[in-house]
């Protein structure tokens, strides 16, 4: 696959979604709803469960399965209340010393009048702001689409992993081609230039690991990673996370 084919493949409805990953990896999952401020955004599925023997808080951006399900989950485009639900449950995880595992799969945060007027920008900013100081391990897995700020909001973790055929980009290749060259046909050129594939981002040092959706192997990798992070003191953990993002671009 070339880079643009990887993007299109990452959007495919046949791929595993967050709910699939939760079923594969998380035991005794209990889903929790609502941001306690406005409502419950089904684009984000969140709750608690166990990975291996470790109790975890799980947050996933969910695209849905069939047409009705996709509408229910707003095609994986979260509203501000989705990000606020995620943040509420991350704070709860901090309180109970539970690590957080995020599954990221979105074309982007929802661009709508209501989303804007309820503070989409502020909701995303708050995730970055608070996650940077969250005193419990955070592991973010980009499983399909890593669409700009809406995906980044759940990626302020101690480690960012990407599925081998996932992508993560500042802008969609189509918008990029349209803005720069007024030509959507050049999306393939944009996709290549944006360096959005897992191997390229790994080479740039922006992500920490590339994984395949092999259930057993992935579960072991997650358990090992969380165990290592849980051995760090809270100060070490937060300082290490600060340095991880501090060095980006410099």
């Amino acid at each position: 696959m070339n880079d643009y084919e990887i993007v299109k493949n990452a959007r495919s409805e046949k791929r595993l979604t967050s709910v699939d990953y939760i079923k594969l990896l998380v035991k005794d999952f209990a889903e929790f709803h609502g941001d306690r401020l406005f409502g419950d955004d089904r684009a984000i599925v969140a709750g608690i469960g166990k990975i291996g023997d470790i109790p975890v808080t799980v947050i996933g951006i969910e695209k849905g399965k069939d047409t009705n399900d996709r509408i229910l989950h707003n095609f994986g485009s979260a509203m501000p209340e989705g990000y606020r639900k995620a943040l509420r449950l991350m704070k709860q995880a901090e309180k109970f010393d539970r690590p957080v595992v995020c599954f990221v799969d979105t074309a982007g945060a929802y661009p709508g009048i209501d989303a804007e007027e309820r503070g989409q920008g502020r909701a995303i900013a708050d995730c970055l702001f608070e996650m940077s100081n969250l005193k419990t391990p955070v592991l973010s897995l980009v499983i399909g689409e890593g669409g700009s700020g809406g995906a980044l909001a759940l990626c302020h973790g101690d480690e960012i992993w990407m599925e081998e055929d996932a992508y993560f980009s500042v802008v969609s290749p189509e918008s990029c081609a349209n803005i720069l060259w007024k030509n959507v046909e050049k999306a393939d050129v944009a996709a290549k230039a944006l360096c959005l594939t897992a191997p390229k981002l790994y080479e740039l040092g922006l992500i920490d690991r590339i994984f395949s959706a092999d259930k057993k192997k992935l579960k072991n990798e997650i358990v090992n990673c969380l165990q290592n992070l849980m051995e760090l003191s809270k100060e070490e953990l937060v300082d290490r996370r600060y340095e991880k993002f501090r060095k980006v671009g410099y």
Binding site: A125, L128, F129, E130, S132, N133, S148, G149, L152, C155, H156, F168, S169, V170, V171, C176, I179, L180, A193, L194, C195, L196, L201, L204, L206, R241, Y242, F245, R246, V248, G249
Partner: peptide
């Protein structure tokens, strides 16, 4: 917004600056 020509490096400046604001705030 973020500068497209720097791809994910530019997007992740959001994370970097927000973390520095948090430290200032704390």
């Amino acid at each position: 917004g973020a500068r497209m020509q720097e791809g994910m490096v530019s997007l992740m400046q959001m994370s970097k600056v927000s973390a520095a604001v948090k430290r200032h705030d704390s």
